[in-house]
Design a protein around this nucleic acid. Structure first.
Lengths: 223, 223
DNA sequence: CTCCGGTATGTTGTATACAAAATATCGTAT
DNA sequence: ATACGATATTTTGTATACAACATACCGGAG
């Protein structure tokens, strides 16, 4: 018995579902998406599916080639090399803003999230650390109070989620990440905006460096 | 006789046309877009039109409310207050990069564009100055060689074009803008990356300040 | 007169059928 | 045997018809 009535449109549901499937690589980068097949799998017609693909294309998650078909976007290392510095700049700005104008309540909330990070790191639980880290950055952007900055960063983050590799997978990266978070929290407590910005930039660029190393290791194995 | 065969899809044509109409305010901010009416005007069916609206919605040019309708986005002064600092940061980064690694040929091309700016400013031709200024910034981003940075800045610029006001309309802003461009060119010649970044940030924030003043003047008149 | 509810109308959302374009297949000629 | 080209097939792009939802209008009760 279907108690839950689906409130949102089929195209919106398709967007959400496909995004998720792209993120966890059930739909693999480079894979071709046949409209008829996909529509059948989702149990909807091609009309709302095509609208969904247009949106995902605008987000950069798929590549929509006229009269040729739709393909899941493949991020190259070069893309990562370009995107991470932008993220570093933008998130650095967020950290700067928050350090300057955070309230006591906001700081408390961030402290609580940081505590979770400490705990998951101690337990060696990479997945939970990753999730909490995501929430932490999100919360920080919320504190910055710039809606458009949040949107831009969010858009880029969507793209980065296309990458198959997680920097936390690299040996030693987890503890390094935690150390960077500690430094950030200290800067926020001191209301040292410049330091917070610097730490955040370093945090993002360190992730890129980790991905570089992982990429190299991968090449050695596969290529 | 129609020699030119329209190669691109109707939905793509609709995207381009609507974007243009939104930019030059034939479609005004806040205006409701009735699918049936619009489709009739464009001489196409609702199917490709709806796909176009989805894309424009993802770009932020229209607001697509489920079951309610589609509305041209209205940018508030607050939006501008949020977006310009981001642009300042990103374009500042572009200036930094270009100053650091520009080639002689690139510098020459930029010089040529700057000369045009000087000419149009001297002639008091605001429209041509505006256009050339656009090309100049675009060229600069090209020189930076970061594709994603270009995309992000481009997305934000699309949004800013929604604004009805142009900062150059403000008394004295044209000459100030030119002065800032001169300072930028000098920094690029000197390969002074930090100075270039600073100048560019200031350039963008000065535009915001001009818009603030225009907005105030407008309130006095209308409100 | 105001407020509530039901019906009517119009607009958005979806499915299906058809057109056009690209790709694959197969036969023929060199 | 290979390369070229015409035809067949598949897939994308578009139009139309229908369903679902939201709103506006109208009538009646309090």
């Amino acid at each position: 018995m279907k108690t839950r009535v689906n409130r949102s449109s089929l195209s919106q549901q398709a967007i959400d579902l496909l995004r998720e499937q792209i993120y966890d690589h059930r739909l693999m980068p480079g894979q071709r998406l046949d409209e008829a097949v996909l529509a059948e799998q989702l149990g909807i017609s091609r009309t709302p599916l095509r609208e969904a693909l247009k949106v995902l294309s605008a987000e950069g998650l798929v590549d929509l080639q006229p009269h040729r078909g739709c393909f899941v976007t493949e991020l190259t290392l070069r893309d990562l090399e370009e995107i991470f510095p932008i993220m570093a700049t933008l998130e650095g700005r967020v950290a700067h803003e928050v350090a300057a104008k955070r309230t006591a309540a906001q700081l408390k909330a961030l402290d609580a999230l940081h505590e979770k990070l400490e705990k998951h790191a101690a337990a060696g639980d990479v997945n939970r650390y990753y999730e909490t880290n995501y929430v932490f950055h999100d919360q920080l952007q919320e504190c910055a109070g710039n809606r458009w900055l949040q949107i831009v960063i969010g858009d880029l983050r969507k793209l980065l989620k296309l990458s198959r590799h997680h920097s936390l997978r690299l040996e030693g990266r987890l503890s390094a990440s935690l150390a960077e978070h500690r430094a950030l929290m200290q800067a926020l407590h001191r209301q040292d905006a410049d330091a917070a910005e610097q730490v955040m930039r370093g945090h993002l660029l360190a992730q890129l460096e980790a991905l570089r190393e992982l990429s190299l290791a991968n090449e050695v194995v596969h290529g």
